[in-house]
């Protein structure tokens, strides 16, 4: 199952300072929105992928950038940081997505784990479920898209010999629908904008799923968990380490192919001043992630930004 958390980040060294501050500002706004709408514990679900979704939505706004204002950080009250005050509900939309995905992640952990682990995973369950219900009340369409995708993912992984494309389809399709419906606000479906958003979402979701699968390959092979690349290359616990290396190299090619399409869609987007952050993520951040996770022995930079 997909673990949608943390692959989609900018390459910090290539951002301008003001772009980095804007990114931080959106991150802080996400944290605030989670806390305000879903309780302090929901802040733990904050992640880079959903933050990118918020940045993307904000970057697509035609009007000038939303205001940034300084406030105290909840995690560290001594620190003051600027946060983004968007009025159009973009951040709230992304926060709802964060909570919905967190709920399905907990569900998934529950169904996948042994008895003792199950008890551990049960702890956050009631709080997460409450938050998820609230998000689903405010964003019924989003909730439907997410739960449909999770259902289809389970079906795909139960199949006899699913191809890589088929396994990636639920996550890719989920983001395609989410991005398309975000574009559709004010635009009719099938408009150029909605088509670009849809392709962008599809390729991004596909990239995230495949990146996660390639990253988890060695662990999944060891524990016998489902992995599309293990199925494709018939790798199991007895396979040589070179087999896994080879599968990773192949996965990198598949990821590159996906990024070529993501970049093509990104190039057609009309973006405001936040555009450089989106472009940084697509053209620098994601390739960087492939490099760090697939080709480096020690994963230092990928773990914290």
């Amino acid at each position: 199952m997909v673990d949608l958390f943390g692959y989609v980040r900018p390459r910090k060294s290539e951002l301008l300072v003001r772009e980095w501050e804007a990114y931080r500002g959106v991150y802080c706004a996400m944290c605030r929105s989670l806390g305000k709408n879903y309780g302090a514990a929901a802040k733990l679900a904050l992640n880079y992928d959903c933050t990118f979704y918020a940045v993307f939505l904000l970057s697509a706004l035609p009007k000038p950038l939303p205001r940034f204002q300084t406030g105290r950080c909840a995690a560290n009250p001594l620190k003051k940081c600027p946060f983004c005050r968007a009025s159009g509900g973009e951040v709230e939309n992304a926060a709802a997505l964060t909570v919905l995905l967190a709920y399905h992640k907990v569900l998934d952990d529950l169904s996948d784990s042994g008895m003792w682990e199950k008890l551990l995973h049960l702890l956050p369950y009631p709080a997460v479920r409450r938050a998820c219900r609230k998000a689903a009340r405010s964003y019924p369409e989003l909730a439907k898209i997410v739960s449909d995708a999770m259902e289809r993912q389970r079906e795909a992984e139960r199949m006899e010999d699913p191809g890589i494309d088929l396994c990636a389809e639920p996550t890719a399709g989920m983001l395609a629908r989410i991005f398309e419906s975000a574009a559709a606000a004010g635009n009719e479906a099938g408009s150029p904008r909605a088509r670009i958003f849809r392709r962008f979402g599809y390729c991004l979701g596909r990239w995230i799923y495949l990146m996660d699968a390639a990253d988890d390959l060695a662990d999944d092979v060891r524990t016998g968990a489902f992995n599309p690349f293990a199925v494709r290359f018939r790798i199991d616990a007895r396979s040589a380490p070179q087999e896994i290396e080879r599968a990773r190299g192949y996965a990198n090619g598949t990821l590159n192919q996906t990024l070529s399409q993501l970049g093509a869609a990104a190039n057609l987007l009309e973006m405001n001043e936040l555009g450089p952050i989106v472009r940084n993520v697509v053209f620098l951040g994601l390739p960087q992630m492939q490099k760090e996770l697939l080709f480096k022995k020690e994963k230092t930079n990928a773990r914290s930004l």
């Binding site: 990198n252 590159n256 070529s260 093509a264 490099k291 080709f295």
Partner: peptide, 16 residues
């Protein structure tokens, strides 16, 4: 070419 990273992505054999 797309798989080799010519249109974005990462190629371990090309320094970046």
């Amino acid at each position: 070419n797309q798989r080799n990273g010519m249109y974005g992505g990462y190629n371990p054999n090309v320094p970046q």
